[in-house]
Structure formats: structure tokens, C-alpha cells
Design a protein around this nucleic acid. Structure first.
Lengths: 122, 122
DNA sequence: ACAACATGTCACCATATGGTGACATATGAG
DNA sequence: CTCATATGTCACCATATGGTGACATGTTGT
């Protein structure tokens, strides 16, 4: 369903948009309602953010008369998280232990290049 | 450890930086090595990305002589994912089922405003 | 029908961002 | 010591981005 992870990550990179998604995760809201949530922003700014979210498939928009209802679509978020975690969980673990080893051995104790627990860098 | 989730999310919003993290999750690499991974980018561009990642605490930098080693710090990623998931898992579930209900009931069948499974919009 | 309400669209703007080349500095190798 | 290697720093640039106000369009309520 999420065609473009890049668009999803990019959309999540902005705090206002994450805040919008927070609100929508509680219940759907009309655009006008969301505008009141951000009194420091003008309406069109909020609409722009919603546009980004819609293009990233993070929200589903339903028009009812003059009301535009915005619904959270949780699937892309779950997808990128799952994908990220499944890709990295073993790597994350080994990276963490490696990081721990680096942190615990002072730099000056290192041999020149031999015996380092590092893989080929080239 | 991750002082600023905004910085983490923002850092993850860029595909090059996510790619860098992918590589570092396998094993640490020197800056020069990472530069060779992105032959389409000039060195300083890669360094800029690493700077963003470092400022977001997503990598730990260790200087060894003229080599700069970059290590993945998996903690902030795990933190924002955990926080995001824990905050939204129940909301995500209810939002998903609500979305499903919206998708399954044609718009014109809706009563005016009464009986809608929506909460107070204000 | 008309006014109020809600949203859509567009042009503009200041700042941010991802990228570049050039110069500088530090370390390593011979 | 000199040269090679690796990185640091800076200024610049084109494009992107988050924001604004104004005008336009569609729907609802009276």
C-alpha cells in the first residue's frame, strides 16, 4: 500500500506532521478542526502538511459536503517500522555490541591495524 | 540518550542518510569509505550527512589518527520506534478499524451528523 | 436567494537543505 | 623530511520547504 517509503519517511520528518498524525490516531478530524489545533499556523500551511501526508498515503481523505475528513492510515507507518526493524534487528544488535566494545577499549590501546574486530572496509 | 526526537526523525527523512545508517548497521566504516559508497556525491556532501547524523546522536564518531570511524548508535532509532509504537499501538488499532468502517460504508448512507462513530470534533 | 461556512488554489517569500569546489589542517608512509 | 592520505572548514548555489495572504469554489443553513 505504501508505494514510496521515501515519501513516508520524509513526511514523518516534520514535527507538525507527526503532531497531526498523533491527533488523527485518536480519531479522525476535519481539516478545519486540525487548523484550530495549530493556532500559530495559517490554514493553508496545515493544508499543505495534509497534502504531504496524503501523498505519502499516511492519511485517507473523505469528503462529506463541505467537510473534509482526514483519517489516519496506519499501514505505511507499520510497514516502514517493520521493514526497518526486520532489516536491522540483527545488525542493530551486532552494532550495539560493537559500539560497546569500542566504548570500553581506550583508543590508544589499539594495535595499529591488526587484530581489530572490524571487517573489510573496502 | 536521544535528546531530540525531532532531530532523529528529521535525519531519517533523507534517503542518503538512511542508506548510510544501513551500511553502518553492518559494520562501522571510515568516512572515506562511506564516500566511496556514494560515487554520485562529493565528499563534503557525505560529511554533511554524517554531521546531521552525529548531531542527532544516530552515529558515534571515533577519531583514530587520520581516520574517522563512524559507528551506528541504534538507541535513538529504537527509542523513537518504541515511543511511536507504544503511543500509537492502541490508537493505531482503533484508527485502523475506524478506517475500515469508513471504507466499508458508502458516504451517502451516512446520517447527517447523528450516530456517527466519531468523537467530539469540537 | 443570500450569507455563512469550509475548503481549494495560487503566487509569493524567507529560510533550510542537499550539493559543489577550493583551501586548510592533521596524520601516516616511505 | 617530504609527499600522500584523510579529513575539516568555508563560501557558494540551486532547489526544496514551511509559511503567508488573497482570491476562488463548493456546500450548508436560514
Amino acid at each position: 500500500m505504501s508505494k514510496d517509503p521515501d515519501a513516508v519517511w520524509k513526511a514523518l520528518g516534520d514535527p507538525t506532521r507527526r503532531n497531526i498524525l498523533d491527533r488523527l490516531s485518536e480519531n479522525p478530524r476535519t481539516t478545519g478542526d486540525l487548523v484550530t489545533v495549530f493556532p500559530d499556523l495559517c490554514r493553508t500551511a496545515v493544508m499543505k502538511h495534509l497534502d504531504v501526508l496524503q501523498n505519502a498515503n499516511l492519511i485517507i481523505v473523505k469528503r462529506e459536503g463541505r467537510l473534509r475528513w482526514n483519517h489516519l492510515n496506519p499501514v505505511p507507518i507499520q510497514e516502514i517500522c517493520d521493514r526497518w526493524v526486520s532489516r536491522h534487528v540483527r545488525h542493530l544488535a551486532s552494532a550495539a555490541s560493537r559500539l560497546k566494545a569500542v566504548a570500553e577499549s581506550p583508543t590508544k590501546n589499539r594495535a595499529k591495524k591488526k587484530g581489530l574486530p572490524r571487517d573489510n572496509q573496502n
